[in-house]
């Protein structure tokens, strides 16, 4: 089973590589991320196989998400972005990154399939049978957070025993 740290490292490196290719950092405004204050938004995608089940999430402030979406689409910083383009761009960021992560961990698990990427706002609450590994990063000029939610074999085993 692939560990949370391995997923997090692969995701963080892939996000940085994606940003290096697509973002024009010189034209991006800076944006911090205060988890207590800011309304969070971002996108998530799953990588699933018989041996692994993981959700990768990219989270930033609402304004940070808009900056990331505009950077991906090549919009000017002061150009308006509608809700559809914002959701589509953030979903595409995690879709690109999930494909890169799949390639990185392919030798450990060659049966992974990607789920559909999903735009989200608000907070996430993992279930008791799930583990969370998370880290902060700066994408271009935007502070963001990567959250990896993956299955917890011990909790799943306990749940199976109590069900029996």
């Amino acid at each position: 089973m692939i560990t949370g740290d391995t997923w997090l490292e692969a995701t963080t490196k892939s996000l940085q590589e994606m940003a290096d290719v697509y973002f024009d950092i010189g034209s991006m405004p800076k944006e911090g991320f205060d988890e207590e204050q800011d309304l969070k938004s971002g996108a998530m995608i799953g990588l699933v196989s018989p041996g692994n089940s993981v959700q990768i999430m990219l989270v930033a402030s609402r304004r940070g998400s808009e900056i990331l979406a505009k950077a991906l689409l090549g919009f000017e910083p002061d150009e308006a972005i509608d809700a559809g383009d914002l959701a589509d761009a953030l979903a595409e960021i995690v879709n690109i990154v999930a494909g890169m992560v799949k390639t990185v961990v392919n030798e450990q698990d060659g049966n992974l399939n990607l789920t559909l990427p999903t735009f989200m706002t608000g907070s996430c609450r993992p279930l008791g049978t799930q583990l969370v590994t998370e880290g902060r990063l700066t994408l271009g000029t935007v502070e963001a957070k990567v959250i990896v939610i993956h299955s917890n074999p011990e909790a799943n085993a306990k749940a199976r025993v109590s069900a029996a």
């Binding site: 697509y22 979406a69 991906l72 689409l73 090549g74 383009d85 589509d88 979903a91 595409e92």
Partner: peptide, 11 residues
């Protein structure tokens, strides 16, 4: 299926 990616490909 992603409008964002179609825009990126054209760019």
């Amino acid at each position: 299926d992603s409008k964002a990616m179609r825009m990126i490909v054209k760019r």
